[in-house]
Amino acid sequence: MEVDEKPVVDKDREQLKQERRDRNKAKKEQRRAEKTKESESTQAEDDTSKEKSTRFTCFVGNLPYSANEESLSAHFEKVAPTSVRVTTQVEKPTKCRGFGFIEFDNYDRMKTCLKLYHQSTFDDKKSPPRRINVELT
């Protein structure tokens, strides 16, 4: 007598194999979805890092101790810096430490500032005029 059907044990094996295949497919799809999410998040991080890296900063040295943010921004008003920072002493927050930083959003403005203002004379009307250094940080 010939039997076309497989024994019951073989059917169970076939079912187990099929279930394993299904689980493996599901795992692969889940990994692909995770990789897609990771690549999207790294793209978002890259975009934010590009935004952060578009600032150009210059060092301003040899400032008088009477310099402040207003006098420094008035000196550099032609190149329109986005941010002006003057470092102050911890004990006396009104007294400058002799240097500061200016930031620009545009590379060309920063280059213009370096060309025009390096070794320029800074006069804040409180102390004698001084020759300042403007350098790339």
Rank of each mutant, 00 (worst) to 15 (best):
110 M>P: 07
99 F>S: 02
30 Q>C: 05
103 E>L: 01
66 S>E: 04
104 F>G: 05
10 D>F: 12
76 F>W: 05
110 M>K: 07
21 R>I: 09
37 K>R: 08
36 T>D: 13
93 P>F: 00
45 E>H: 06
120 S>A: 06
133 N>T: 14
3 V>L: 14
94 T>M: 04
25 K>R: 10
75 H>T: 02
94 T>L: 05
10 D>C: 12
112 T>D: 08
76 F>R: 00
136 L>A: 11
71 S>P: 00
135 E>S: 07
49 S>H: 06
122 F>N: 01
41 S>E: 11
74 A>K: 02
119 Q>V: 10
35 K>P: 02
103 E>Q: 02
39 S>F: 11
127 S>E: 14
124 D>L: 05
87 T>G: 01
5 E>D: 10
135 E>V: 10
88 T>F: 11
30 Q>A: 12
108 D>E: 15
86 V>A: 00
9 V>E: 15
34 E>A: 11
68 N>S: 02
29 E>Q: 08
52 K>F: 06
64 P>M: 01
112 T>A: 07
45 E>R: 12
19 E>G: 03
137 T>S: 13
71 S>R: 01
39 S>Y: 07
51 E>V: 10
68 N>H: 04
54 T>F: 13
117 Y>A: 01
129 P>E: 01
96 C>M: 02
66 S>V: 01
57 T>W: 08
72 L>T: 03
13 R>K: 15
40 E>V: 08
117 Y>M: 03
121 T>E: 07
53 S>M: 14
22 D>V: 08
36 T>E: 13
95 K>I: 13
106 N>R: 02
22 D>L: 11
112 T>W: 03
29 E>T: 05
128 P>E: 13
34 E>D: 08
88 T>M: 11
114 L>F: 08
40 E>I: 06
101 F>H: 05
48 T>S: 14
33 A>C: 09
37 K>E: 13
70 E>F: 09
27 K>D: 12
35 K>A: 11
131 R>V: 15
20 R>K: 12
74 A>E: 09
69 E>P: 07
59 F>C: 06
94 T>I: 08
118 H>G: 03
70 E>L: 09
124 D>H: 06
88 T>W: 00
126 K>S: 06
119 Q>W: 14
73 S>T: 11
5 E>K: 12
41 S>I: 06
116 L>N: 11
60 V>H: 07
